[in-house]
């Protein structure tokens, strides 16, 4: 159960090579899917182009449900990339985990809190950046005193809570899924009886994890747009 991580020191920073590899794999898969399905684009779409257009419209719908498209259009690319990247990342850890010399190499990159917190923090920082850029420093600051000035401390806490929950929700769901998959895999490899006993729960849990992975990708992007709209849109 207890696996190590392939840690390396480089330029005074510590790298988890497994994370980096899995991030690259996820990025590569997303890029290939998107790249291949957008070759020879047609006005009358077929096959994968339909799928990619559905993803685009889906994210567009998420953005539109939170803010005016005039404000939100700039987040479209961010939203599509996030949802594809997180979904693929969530799926990566499902089929297997690879452990080499006690180090865990193959897993979901989103099963590491550093990765998810980085994404969450990026989103929150982006929301502050666009808040200041689009509404001006004055209006942005005034936002902390709404609806009541005495709520100011809560507003400050909210920003940190948002970051933490956004990152840890994704991490927790995927991590828990992988823990249980690891346990079931351990049971399956223990004995012949264990193998038989593990088949059904394994299949059920993997199916559920696919569902969880999709839901979490959706929730992450949805909340991203909610937080962005809080800072960017006028009518909130």
């Amino acid at each position: 159960m207890e696996h190590g991580a392939p840690m390396r020191e480089f330029l005074g920073m510590s790298f988890n090579l497994s994370n980096i590899m899995m991030l690259l794999v996820a990025a590569l898969i997303v890029f290939l899917i998107a790249f291949i399905s957008t070759r020879n684009l047609k006005l009358k779409p077929t096959g994968m182009q339909n799928f990619m257009e559905w993803v685009m419209d889906f994210v567009k719908g998420l953005i539109k449900s939170n803010m005016d498209w005039r404000d939100g259009g700039r987040f479209h690319v961010l939203g599509i990339t996030l949802i594809m990247f997180i979904f693929v990342s969530n799926m990566l850890g499902l089929p297997f985990a690879i452990v080499v010399n006690g180090d865990l190499w193959w897993k979901s990159p989103t099963a590491d809190p550093t990765v998810t917190m980085t994404l969450a923090a990026t989103v929150i920082i982006l929301s502050h950046y666009y808040g200041i850029r689009l509404k001006g420093l004055g209006q942005y600051s005034a936002g902390y005193l709404k609806p009541m000035p005495f709520l100011f401390p809560l507003k400050i806490i909210e920003e940190f809570a948002n970051t933490l929950t956004l990152g840890l929700r994704l991490y927790g769901n995927i991590y828990a899924g992988e823990i249980l998959l690891t346990l079931l895999a351990g049971l399956a490899s223990a004995s012949a009886f264990g193998f038989v006993a593990a088949i059904l729960p394994m299949m059920a849990w993997q199916g559920f994890s696919i569902f969880i992975g999709a839901i979490q990708a959706f929730i992450f992007v949805m909340l991203t747009m909610v937080y962005l709209s809080h800072k960017v849109a006028d009518d909130h």
Binding site: S14, N16, N19, A27, V30, F31, H76, T114, T118
Partner: peptide, 29 residues
Amino acid sequence: LNTGDILATLVIFILLMLLLKKFAWGPLM
């Protein structure tokens, strides 16, 4: 703190976003 991981995540994600914007999302849009 896995500063290296943080940096890698950021770089990889932003790079992916820019590449996709250029090669996939842009043309599709």
